[in-house]
Amino acid sequence: MADTLFIILAVLTVASALLVVVNKNAVNAALGLLISLLGLAGLFVLLDAPLLAFVLLMVYAGAVVALFLFIIMLLDTTPGAAKPFSKMTLVATLIGAGLLFTGIYSLAHRAVLPAAPATLPVPTMKNYAEQLFTTYLLPVQVVGFMLLIAMLGVIVLSKKFDQTEGAK
C-alpha cells in the first residue's frame, strides 16, 4: 500500500515539477507548483510527518502560490514569442543532468544509509513544541525577528517612489 502510494505521489510530484519548468504560461506553472506541493505533502504523510504536511499546505499552497498567482495577474506578463533553444539551454541541461547523475552515483556507491525506518511513534505537536522551545529557542527568536525585518522590507519596497532615477 505504502509502496503504491509512494510511486503515485512521486510520479505526480515530478510530473508537475516538470510542468513548472517547461510550461510557457506562468499561471500554468504556478498551478503545476501547487500540484507538486500536494504530492510532496502526501510524501510527508508517508514519512510520518502529518504536521509538516499540514504546515506545508498552509504556508506554500495557501500563501506562497496564492501570492504568486496574485502577482502574475497583477503584472499581466503576456508570454512573449518563444525563442528557439540556444546553446545556453544545452549547457544548462547538461549541468542539471550531470548534477543528477553525480548525486545518484554517489548515493548508490558511497552512501551508508539505514535500511529500515527507526521504530518510533509518530512525532506529535508536543514533540515539535518541546524541541522548538528548548533546543531551538534562539533560532526561533532569530527567525521571528527576520520575519519582522522582511515585513518592513516589503513595506518599504512597495512604497511609491518618484519616477525619476536617483530618487531620494
Partner: peptide, 16 residues
C-alpha cells in the same frame, strides 16, 4: 522504498 528512493526523488526535484 526506503531512504534512497526518497533521496533519489529529492535529487530529481532539485535538478528539475
Amino acid at each position: 522504498y526506503g531512504l534512497p528512493a526518497y533521496l533519489l526523488l529529492s535529487a530529481v526535484l532539485f535538478a528539475l
